[in-house]
Nucleic acid binder design. Structure first.
Lengths: 365, 365
DNA sequence: TTGAAAGCGCTAACAA
DNA sequence: TTGTTAGCGCTTTCAA
């Protein structure tokens, strides 16, 4: 009676059994109105709030879905966004923000709350494990959680992997994971096709990342497809790999491109594997006195808001991040309804080429 | 051994007691390395993940902080944002997004995860109660949760109210709630002063909301202060109250202002209680063929990203929503460290006037 | 419609 | 360093 009140306290005060108190909260209509009222009054007087932990333990479900995402604070993403727009850097959404929003909405529709955590340490007591233990199902942004942990977690609850490649793995591996990604290759292919066919560009350069980002690789593959289809030379490797796929990395890549410009001069178009790099490049090129798109076209990938605000506005491929979150929830909810776990699903969401000024298109539209 | 594995399964397999298994996860260094290894291996083989519910129940703490926010889907906020920027409406962050981001970061620093839920129903089984039962402390956006529920919840765990007025209530009321808000009155006063002193405007109109929004009222108070200080007439009531503080509401208010323009003609400046309305007004005025700021100045309040993109860019007062989230976490963490609950705290965060074109300032800066 | 009783899976003393 | 033993507060049969 001293600490926080429990069912027992409420039951005592209302003159009913603890089972009845429990019923009042779980299925009010199964309790006679008068009784229910009495319980609710007692609860209110006592300041009773059902313990989620106890409920979860007893009922083996939490009513919560989880999201693990990387500690996505690319320091120069933030500081340079601020530089371009010192006015309000916080106007910009990160991917994680959009996914969170999508998941929260969808989760709410299904009566779930959302538990979010950026990956921190790893180790036995990782945040991930913490999340996994407190939710009924969970979405994980690719490369956030050590594969090994994922393997363990996915044996206990449905896990959907977001935005990474489908599990490439061997025996005993992550074959049980669902997976949602966006159409990286198709998007990059279509964007490349646009540059080639609609703008008549032929000497194109693709800038990837050095880290083995599956997204970047898929985009490169799309680039190659488009080159092949157009009868242009098909590179085996990206012409350049930025060390970091950040604005700084993109700026450095652009510098290098300019410096190494051979007898043919600059390429007619540079396709960056993401918007961050493209934006950095735009700045670097301007500093070098080069005009975009007159001297060369520049494109990105992702569709970050910043891309609209730079000069010239960035042509890119937009990923439907919010939908990614929504679809993740739908998938989890479906899984949770199954009595037996079915085959892993893999969903690919369509992307959209956004033509703005940096590729030579007139208007933003 | 059939269902999800528990400490007992792991203990059995590793040949140790359940206490040891528990220790491996809670304080690895208190277990001999060899033992620990054995446990970890067994856990991995079994697919063991500690149950958050059980831990929470046994330890009486969850390691999770919560946030309840309103179901913030102003339908025309979304659709009109889309109209202005059909290209990517989802580029815009809502308040809740920013607060979430702030809280998540701060929570992470302190080792907490974040549970978020938009208020849905109310009633015994409300989402709020659900959240409250699963967290160690919780932030609530003003007017999200019925006062009565808050009263109950706050007896069980620390609750910090965000962005509302300090609790105005009577005996037995919410006197135990901490509270963080932004300097509404000060911001509006400073903005008004700017119009009066720097732009020399004298005939000003304030447009509030009809619903009793404490924020809007505080802003109106700031407006009055500035008028008084400047020796201008001090209205008792806002000259106009929009039915909804949305873009549609603002547009309607602007229409009315134009229609009722008496012998003196239009006011020289119209101050809206929020950005949404101001943006709507900007559209409406343009449709009427009026020029802003030449024919009249327009200002908002909030600092929503959309304000930068409209024509002319909107002069406003920016609220530090992200910091609101961070401060909320700091406060909760502080509360959780106390052994005895101290006096309620009330924090007021400073705001910033953002001078853009709509008030007659030349540049966005 | 209500009650009694047996766990749910873990932590936290306390012992050993 | 490790094991034993009570609970933590609730849900859930099963009876009444």
């Amino acid at each position: 009676m001293a600490g926080t009140p429990t069912v027992y306290d409420v039951a005592g005060r209302a003159g009913v059994s603890i089972a009845t108190v429990s019923r009042v909260y779980r299925s009010p209509e199964s309790v006679r109105e008068a009784t229910r009222e009495r319980v609710l009054v007692a609860a209110r007087e006592l300041g009773y709030v059902p313990s989620g932990s106890a409920r979860g333990l007893a009922s083996r479900s939490t009513g919560v879905l989880g999201l693990c995402f990387p500690d996505y604070s690319d320091p120069d993403a933030e500081s340079e966004a601020a530089a371009v727009d010192a006015d309000d850097d916080h106007a910009f959404m990160l991917y994680s923000d959009q996914i969170i929003r999508g998941m929260e909405r969808a989760a709410r529709r299904h009566g779930y709350a959302l538990l979010i955590a950026a990956s921190l340490t790893g180790g036995p007591e990782s945040l991930v494990a913490k999340v996994a233990g407190r939710v009924d199902g969970c979405a994980v942004l690719a490369r956030t959680v050590p594969t090994e942990d994922l393997e363990v977690i996915s044996r206990r609850l449905p896990v959907v992997m977001l935005a990474g490649p489908p599990e490439q793995d061997g025996p005993g591996g992550l074959d049980r994971l669902d997976h949602i990604e966006v159409a990286n290759a198709e998007g990059q292919r279509e964007l490349t096709r646009h540059l080639i066919e609609d703008h008549g560009l032929r000497r194109l350069t693709f800038v990837g990342g050095i880290e083995d980002s599956p997204d970047a690789e898929a985009r490169f593959a799309g680039f190659r497809d488009a080159c092949r289809a157009a009868g242009l030379p098909v590179p085996d490797e990206p012409d350049l790999r930025a060390e970091l796929m950040t604005q700084a990395g993109g700026a450095r890549a652009a510098e290098e491109l300019v410096d190494r410009a051979g007898p043919d001069g600059l390429p007619e178009g540079v396709l960056f594997a993401n918007d961050q790099m493209a934006v950095g490049a735009l700045h670097a090129l301007a500093r070098r006195g080069l005009r975009v798109p007159e001297d060369l076209a520049v494109t990105g990938f992702d569709g970050i808001p910043l891309g609209r605000l730079v000069q010239p506005a960035l042509t890119t491929v937009r990923q439907p991040m919010r939908r990614l979150g929504e679809e993740a929830v739908e998938l989890l909810v479906r899984r949770l309804a199954e009595e037996q776990r079915g085959e892993p699903e893999s969903l690919v969401l369509p992307v959209e080429v956004v033509r703005r000024a940096s590729c030579g298109c007139g208007h933003e539209a």
